[in-house]
Design a protein around this nucleic acid. Structure first.
Lengths: 341, 341
DNA sequence: GCGAAAAGTGCAAACGATTGCTCAGACGGT
DNA sequence: ACCGTCTGAGCAATCGTTTGCACTTTTCGC
């Protein structure tokens, strides 16, 4: 008649007629071999009968491992992140880990606070999506003794495991596509400074152009990876160099869509007047008007690899250093040969 | 020279020259009044000096409150969820809670497993986005004694707090818009059965039409809220009733985009031949071709309200029951007057 | 069969907080 | 002056596990 609360390990022990420590071992796959088969089975049966679920809190307190990993993203509404986060969560869940999610809003103070809070919650490690230079994460994580894995963006200088795309080579694909279409005067709509992907992609654009003896006719860096910032930077590009380029290589899809907005404002047609390419191949990139020619990155694979890298670290293995996943060109309709004349 | 590990409450106590229990009280705003001002300040200083961060694990173990809330979504890559999740996380974070995220993949077994796992982690409550009939969540949560709050979809029958949109009234806006444009033969591309929003929106379509003495000329329900399922259901609609309708009211944006795909396959132009409306006003809905006329719901407000409802419950307050947030029509270009003749 | 090694369990001390009790002293009313 | 109340702080138990150590039994080599 009494409300028993959740059964504890002692309840199981009592029912199985053994000591709690024996139950603990019998239920731990890595210690089960120290227990006789008969007892292990009796314990399993008792646990099953009681519907016993060990308290991860108590286990974490004692063992120091909470089976919890924190994931930090700057902005979940940026379509790049959901697939990555989802893949991370799935991979962690498969390994029995639960995912703590928080959004930093690209604010360094918030990032530091969230890491501390996750550490207080006993997180075993932190996966940081989109680190920016000056990010307090490496310092904070190191101070707290937490393994840190970067995903989507690396952090040059810091020796941290990271899973990223082949940014330079990937955007080179887009540039070469434009060159093949006959473009010679190409502008780059770059990502914010302090972000590794932005620098890498700018480098990639320069390299691909240089291979043909060319250089970008203009480079304008957006203040953030958002549609609004992309539109603004494109307006700047038009102010400075209107008519001076026939194509814009954007550092990501959101920026490219911002370019769509800005080009439309001044009556320029895509791709008839100006070609535009993006980067990321985010969901819906095929549905915009015109469908965006872009570079596909492996969102899911990236998330999964990041989770695997974290799990390897948590197992005490060295794990991979920086992993670079290849990107592929996706040709749609936003890039076409330049207008004759 | 020794590696001190993280400072514990006893370290702070020692430094402040008081007992650990006094530190605990001095640091707890709701118990601070039992401590003299002088001691409280000494403790605060000591904690500050040591960089003390209480272990949420230990606190949770003893107090039964882990300051952790689990959030379950069926699929994070559905653009409806990120803004909701982000708002939930932000509101919870403001209250000092951390968010556990997991994706159920619309799988009941997985949903049950994840709830158990979150309970084992000591989660204080569960917020479930998009419950479907037959969801094991209410039962599981009740068994575990966890408060459950629904967001985006309610669960008819279960007496659970839920924060949803005014689905019926909202989609009525779209229908009335179509009627005002002159459409009379309207088909409904419905959501999956077993999902409350789908039923509510279907009801809303019927009600709005009935007010004019009309009824939907066809109703086809998609197997899931995805672009693919939307395309398939639209193909079915065309098979059955091609030419029999001049507009499609879709139960959500993803379905509407699927309709775009299917209509294009057979050479039908939007909106010249067929008008299409969506629901949700997801990000990018304005960028597709043609820009989607849809119904805007308050993603962020919904997430925030759900988090607030959960926090109220955790404070022991009754909190609101079902909250319905109004929706608004967003007119873009996918709906136009029907072709003459 | 003997002793040593191995196997299988139990014991009890952590882990780091929270909280019901106890207790000493200050205070105030009569 | 005395007694009761209140305040502020300490004591110690407790939350539910894990794990180093000690203690029996087997097991096995010789």
């Amino acid at each position: 008649m009494e409300r028993p609360g959740r059964p504890t390990i002692s309840d199981v022990a009592r029912l199985a007629g053994v000591h709690a420590s024996t139950v603990s071992r019998a239920l731990d796959p890595s210690a089960r071999h120290r227990i006789s088969r008969a007892v292990a089975e009796r314990v399993a049966a008792a646990a099953e009968q009681l519907g016993y679920r060990p308290s991860a809190l108590a286990a974490g307190l004692r063992s120091g491992r909470s089976h919890t990993v924190g994931v930090l993203v700057p902005d979940l509404t940026n379509p790049v992140f959901p697939p990555i986060v989802q893949a991370i969560e799935a991979a962690l869940a498969r390994a029995g880990y639960v995912t703590l999610l928080a959004s930093t809003e690209a604010d360094a103070a918030k990032e530091a606070l969230l890491i501390r809070r996750m550490a207080a919650q006993g997180a075993d490690g932190i996966i940081l999506a989109s680190a920016a230079t000056g990010s307090p994460a490496p310092g904070a994580a190191a101070r707290l003794g937490l393994p840190l894995v970067l995903v989507n963006r690396r952090l040059p200088g810091a020796e941290l495991p990271a899973v990223v795309s082949e940014d330079a080579a990937g955007i080179g694909l887009a540039v070469r596509h434009l060159l093949a279409l006959g473009h010679r005067r190409i502008a780059h709509l770059g990502g914010p400074s302090g972000v590794a992907t932005a620098a890498d992609r700018l480098r990639g654009v320069r390299a691909a152009l240089r291979a043909e003896g060319l250089a970008p006719v203009a480079v304008e860096r957006a203040a953030a990876y958002t549609r609004q910032a992309g539109a603004e930077a494109t307006r700047a590009l038009l102010r400075v160099r209107r008519g001076g380029f026939t194509a814009i290589v954007a550092a990501n899809d959101l920026l490219a869509l911002g370019a769509y907005d800005a080009l439309r404002e001044v009556g320029l047609r895509i791709p008839a007047d100006i070609s535009v390419t993006g980067f990321n191949d985010m969901p819906m990139a095929d549905l915009v008007d015109p469908p965006l020619t872009t570079v596909r990155i492996q969102h899911a694979a990236m998330g999964e690899a990041a989770a695997e890298a974290m799990l390897a670290r948590l197992r005490g293995e060295a794990g991979p250093g920086t992993v670079r996943l290849p990107a592929a060109l996706v040709v749609r309709a936003s890039a076409a040969p330049p207008q004759a004349g």
